[in-house]
Design a protein around this nucleic acid. Structure first.
Length: 274
DNA sequence: TTCCAGGCGTATC
DNA sequence: GATACGCATGGA
């Protein structure tokens, strides 16, 4: 990564990074594409820190961003210090993964907030991405930012009806109450051996294997976590009848991101042809 | 109209 | 432990 300060912006040159692939691949739901004169521009947040970021030619523009915020917040959030070229090279020993890396090699795993990621993927269950974004958008609009567990714990099913989250509202309440009352500590869970962390997360109502795995991968940067949803299930059935390659286990979560994007693109193209 | 969406809880065997 | 079914909501 190379960067310079220019006016109030930070200009960044970064390999293995594509804004559309990273911010619109179903790992984070609070980034909004806005129309500008750049190649593409997104507005979004990490916690309560806003950011407008553009892609333009061979570089990226962090608008109205201080060097301090760039280094302290965004380098970590966008995982700029991880060598994805090296990871992709390793994963590409497998044919299908090689194709997926080539197709979606600009995805970086965002280091999101633990609580927000947990809530986001509780909301994601049996739901589609546009609607997940809608629910989270209503949530953040209502609280003028992503609500804390303590704030949400004060609500009840009726007071959350504005979310139109359906049966998932009671799950959000259970998660927030048990964190607010100290029964669960996401910081502690993040540091546990992964099977203990899975078990702790799944003690929350509405958190099963898939949501727990997503909370670990997207909120706690446990890149060995491997969420299996309907799409990845199709990948495993179609391409890995004898099991997922063991050499990829260390980076299974990143491999999963590439595969998720890849299989969805194949599905879309066949749907269009049909 | 019916089907489906980055699943999970519950009942039943 | 495995399998079947309902679940809130809304887009296609």
């Amino acid at each position: 990564m190379k960067y310079i300060q220019k006016d109030n912006n930070i200009i960044v040159w970064q390999n293995d990074f594509n804004l559309n692939e990273t911010l619109d691949c179903g790992q984070a739901f609070r980034w909004e594409k806005i129309s500008t004169s750049f190649d593409c521009t997104y507005k979004g947040f990490y916690l309560n820190h806003p950011l407008t970021i553009s892609a333009k030619g061979d570089h990226f523009i962090f608008h109205d961003t201080s060097e301090q915020d760039f280094l302290n917040i965004w380098v970590n959030y966008f995982d700029f210090e991880t060598d994805y070229g090296k990871i992709k090279k390793l994963l590409s020993k497998d044919k299908t993964l090689a194709k997926a890396c080539e197709f979606a090699g600009g995805i970086r795993l965002l280091r999101q907030d633990k609580w927000e990621a947990l809530c986001s993927f509780i909301i994601s269950q049996n739901n589609n991405i546009p609607r997940i974004k809608g629910i989270i958008s209503r949530l953040c609009a209502h609280y003028q930012g992503f609500p804390s567990p303590q704030q949400l714990a004060l609500e009840n099913i009726d007071s959350l009806s504005f979310l139109r989250a359906g049966f998932r509202a009671k799950y959000l309440l259970d998660a927030s109450r048990r964190i607010a009352n100290g029964e669960l500590d996401l910081g502690e869970i993040a540091a546990m051996p992964i099977n203990d962390a899975r078990k702790a997360l799944m003690s929350i109502k509405g958190v099963g294997p898939k949501v727990a795995e997503c909370a670990l991968l997207y909120g706690m940067y446990r890149i060995e976590a491997f969420p299996i949803d309907v799409w990845i299930k199709r990948v495993l059935e179609q391409y890995y009848p004898n099991g997922f390659p063991e050499f990829a286990n260390e980076y299974a979560g990143i491999a999963q991101q590439y595969l998720f994007h890849y299989i969805r693109s194949l599905q879309k193209s066949t749907t269009q042809m049909a």
